[in-house]
Each structure stands twice: as C-alpha cells, then as structure tokens.
C-alpha cells in the first residue's frame, strides 16, 4: 500500500497576493475534513530565516503544497537548503486556481508532481563539469 502524500498549506500571511477568499476557503475545507495537515504562516518568511522546519516539511516524502507558483515554491525551499523532492511534490497555486480546484487536488490520492525541472538556460561555467569547461 502506498502512503498518501502529506498536505502543507501556506497562509501567505505577510502579503495580500493570494486572494483572501481562496485561501480561507481552502483552509476551511481542510479544517472540515478529517485529514491531518501542516499549516505555515508564510513560506517566504520561513525561507528568509532558513527555518529548519522547511527541511522537515521537505524531507517527509510525497507532499502536496497549497501555496503559489511552483517555480517560486521550488526555489524558496532550495534557498533554505531544504530542496523539495522533484518527483514527489505537487504545488497547488492559490493565486490562480479556485478553492475547489485546490481542495480537490489536495484530497485526491493521486499525486501529480509539477515542479519545474531542468536547466532552462545555458549552464554557467560554475555549473559545468571541469572537463566540459576546458572543451
């Protein structure tokens, strides 16, 4: 039997960029459900403080995160030296998705990993193996 993904909810407390009605509706649905979940006030603030809690949140296996853009979430965790598992993290974007869409995805047993992967630009000198730099 596979273990269901964990749920992490970000309240984006310190900015008004996530529509209030969406984040409230998502939290309400989480509270009405019987599921266990982690909720944080603001992933940005935790990343800025290199909060060790991000490591515990990233390390615990498959996870669904209700927050904002996947690209931002990926690099916020990376900045705090707590990279998310690329193949085991699904980000739901409360800035653009509806509360129903986000909640349905959170409660679905299926995980749809969607973190951006792969270098989008030419690798810099520091990213290339030394043999390739010489060539």
């Amino acid at each position: 039997m596979t273990t269901p993904p964990r749920i992490l909810y970000c309240n984006c407390t310190y900015a008004q960029v996530v529509p209030k009605e969406v984040k409230e509706a998502v939290l309400k649905k989480l509270c009405e459900s019987g599921v266990a979940f982690d909720a944080v006030a603001d992933l940005c603030e935790m990343s800025a403080r290199l909060d060790p809690a991000l490591k515990r949140l990233a390390d615990g296996g498959a996870v669904k995160i209700a927050a904002c853009y996947p690209r931002a979430v990926k690099w916020l965790f990376h900045a705090a030296k707590a990279p998310l598992p690329i193949e085991a993290a699904e980000i739901l974007n409360m800035r653009v998705q509806s509360a129903d869409e986000v909640a349905n995805a959170l409660f679905s047993a299926e995980l749809q990993p969607n973190l951006p992967t792969g270098k989008a630009t030419k690798p810099s000198a520091v990213e290339l193996p030394k043999s390739e730099v010489a060539a």
Partner: peptide, 13 residues
Amino acid sequence: AVTRVSDKGRVAP
C-alpha cells in the same frame, strides 16, 4: 506554524 494531527493522514516529523 500549526500542525493538525488526526488518525487520517501524515504530518511532517
């Protein structure tokens, strides 16, 4: 940061 624990689902360790 708040963790809601219940017998359904997992939370971070």
